[in-house]
Design a protein around this nucleic acid. Sequence first.
DNA 1: TTGCATAATTAGGCAAGCCTAATTAACTTA
DNA 2: TAAGTTAATTAGGCTTGCCTAATTATGCAA
Lengths: 252, 252
Amino acid sequence: MIKQNLSESQQDYLKIVLDLINEKKVARIKEIATRKDVSMPSATEAMRKLSNEGYIQYSAREFIELTAIGEKTAHRLTSKHSFLKHFFSDVLNINEDAADQEACAVEHHLSDSTLERLILLYQFLNECEKNDARTINLFKECLKAAEGGAQSSVACRNCFIAHNFPHHPGEKTLHTLLANLIRGQDGQIVMLGPDSEIRLSLIEKGLMPGSLFHMEEAGDASSPFVIQTDGCLIELDEEAAKMIEVAIEQPE
Amino acid sequence: MIKQNLSESQQDYLKIVLDLINEKKVARIKEIATRKDVSMPSATEAMRKLSNEGYIQYSAREFIELTAIGEKTAHRLTSKHSFLKHFFSDVLNINEDAADQEACAVEHHLSDSTLERLILLYQFLNECEKNDARTINLFKECLKAAEGGAQSSVACRNCFIAHNFPHHPGEKTLHTLLANLIRGQDGQIVMLGPDSEIRLSLIEKGLMPGSLFHMEEAGDASSPFVIQTDGCLIELDEEAAKMIEVAIEQPE
DNA sequence: TTGCATAATTAGGCAAGCCTAATTAACTTA
DNA sequence: TAAGTTAATTAGGCTTGCCTAATTATGCAA
């Protein structure tokens, strides 16, 4: 009788039912349809299904009530949503509305065990005594700098490679800027620089920390850099190439 | 001709096509079907669609090739996937297979702007010079402690409230353990304690940082604590109640 | 208590993404 | 080059989750 895995849509319905019962004592088809932004027949059908699967009690034209398992499930889903929203807005500093949307989009697909890890990360950043300086605040400073355009991100430029190169002297790899590589060298992206506009455009091109690439054509102020990743050629202007920290094999 | 939003399924097909072309020079229906774990007719149909929408070049029984936009899109999706996998396994310390699965599940739903924030967080933890001690290593220590059962998490117990209470003297809220509240008090969960089994069971019940609750019935060693969140009653045994750090209003 | 507005349901349809069974095309090899 | 194998396609169907239009039930007001 009880199906283990509710579809995304069914999960949404279940959360809405819980919400409505909490807010207005009763959940009505009309309200459910409105909140889910679907027609009333769709809501009716969804209720019938949830009822068949044991999550709510419902017969045509009667009160909708959550069963014990329905309530438990709905509550778990709701909490997951709130935590994710919380994480997105508090930690990643995404504005409330976007955080909410994003939480909606992701919540159905994140396993409980990954959620646990995010919770641990959240707790670590906010509360862990090892972080006596409250790391989260440091990160927020960085975010603030990184959110503005090039001009406003002075504070964050200091994080960037050019100033303290090579970065990790003990290791076999050397860190430098993508713009410094010559044709034929291989590398891996380590970090994207402080300009938020350029950074987003790099991300949209699929360039981000971890990306492996091959320098196909070293450019300069007048001709673009061409790199290959994943079998695809990507062009970058000099400004962007100077905004990418990469790791390369130690030359000897 | 070009549809802006590819469905999840279409995105997967596109990534598979790029992968195959990179690995084996050509992408064949049979291989595509195998990787996606669907029948060949399904793969054929998907190719027809992607072709109509301008992402690949394909006519029946001929070579499948990516168009410029198809390649760009596929590459972006692939990178997103790798970064997320990277983040899950490197930062959150989830094992490779699970990280891969999780990245698959989430990648379609995470917006580029949220991805950017995750990248910034990743960079901050790994590289930001403000974190001279490489915060990521601190976090990993915590994770390691938090991953074991109660017995192995001695190191992390120190993070937990009981030892350094009250936590944030300057603030209007007071931190304590859920087990210390009396019937009728309201609180908000701040942190889940070090025992990994209990922590997961709390998360499954929908209790996590940020959850607001009302103490319905204060328990003890022999009778359970009963709290209300989101209109739902939840029972906790004493051991669990002592593993939850909560914030309450300052008593005066 | 009849009539009307609103809520809910039924009936019938559509798109996406999958399936199996049957057919056709393309290679391969004796 | 004819036969057999394998790959790909077509045809027809299923499920989920949505829709509109039409119908039925409910509750309130004159």
